[in-house]
């Protein structure tokens, strides 16, 4: 019970700190980009305006949420260690697993909040242009969030042993891009054999399959379901477990 209470306090504080940090500039930038894109799309796409507007909106939502959440995930713990704010935390009866859980939960909440607000802006824009949202709209946004959850969890883990927040962000971004290549990687692995095939197979296991969450790219018949949630939970739990293992003996 105390564990959850502590985690909740850390999560709320993490969310609050991230939100106060030039937060709303991000939304203003999103809204400006979305409006500009809609004007361009209107001129250039004409008959495909709805599609272009939708795709641009989803793409922007995902990239901006990813960039912002990744920035905070990379900085969350190293910054507290650097500024020694962490002294004020661990000189108190705060368990390290609870702290890690709180940090992760606060960042997941940040991602969800950002996506919710940007989705509202996006839907308003679509509505203003007279286009209804696609049937899978909320599934698509939910899958974007699950993708962000996986990458944030990994970023938090990487930040514990990485030399700087920049390298954490770079490594996480590389995992992000590789995660979209997983289906293609599987195709290559099937073709490759011998030692290189085994090596590729091993490497493929270490990268989460983010293409599973790309509903915005998938055919309309596909939809998010229990498997996506289970897979994201698996990766988030694994990253959390690894983080706790690494963090438990850390000295400040």
């Amino acid at each position: 019970m105390k564990y959850l209470y502590t985690a909740r306090s850390v999560a709320a504080e993490t969310f609050r700190e991230s939100v106060k940090n030039r937060f709303f500039t991000v939304f203003a930038v999103f809204a400006a980009c979305a409006i500009y894109a809609s004007l361009l799309a209107g001129v250039m796409a004409i008959e495909e305006e709805a599609r272009v507007l939708s795709d641009l909106g989803f793409g922007l939502m995902e990239l901006m949420t990813l960039a912002y959440a990744l920035f905070h995930a990379a900085m969350a713990i190293p910054r507290e260690m650097e500024t020694k704010a962490i002294y004020l935390v661990f000189s108190r009866p705060v368990s390290r697993p609870a702290y890690m859980l709180g940090k992760a939960a606060g960042l997941y909440l940040l991602g969800a909040f950002m996506l919710a607000v940007m989705a509202a802006i996006h839907l308003s824009l679509l509505s203003l242009r007279g286009f209804p949202p696609c049937a899978a709209y909320f599934n698509i946004v939910a899958c974007i969030w699950l993708k962000i959850v996986i990458i944030i969890s990994l970023a938090l883990f990487i930040s514990l042993f990485s030399t700087s927040p920049v390298s954490t962000m770079v490594i996480s971004a590389v995992i992000w891009t590789l995660g979209h290549f997983t289906p293609e990687a599987r195709f290559l692995i099937e073709k490759a054999g011998g030692f290189s095939g085994a090596l590729l197979k091993g490497a493929a296991w270490m990268i989460p399959d983010l293409q599973l969450y790309n509903l915005r790219d998938a055919p309309l018949s596909a939809s998010g379901g229990w498997f996506q949630v289970f897979y994201a939970a698996l990766w988030a739990l694994a990253a959390y477990g690894a983080s706790v293992l690494l963090f438990r003996k850390k000295e400040f």
Binding site: R16, K20, K84, L88, V89
Partner: peptide, 24 residues
């Protein structure tokens, strides 16, 4: 600690509330 750090956007009440919660 020496030269304690508090998040600059916060208020003193907000910061103290957080540490109070962490103290149980």
């Amino acid at each position: 600690p020496e030269l304690p750090y508090f998040p600059p956007h916060n208020t003193p009440y907000g910061a103290l509330r957080y540490y109070g919660l962490l103290s149980g």
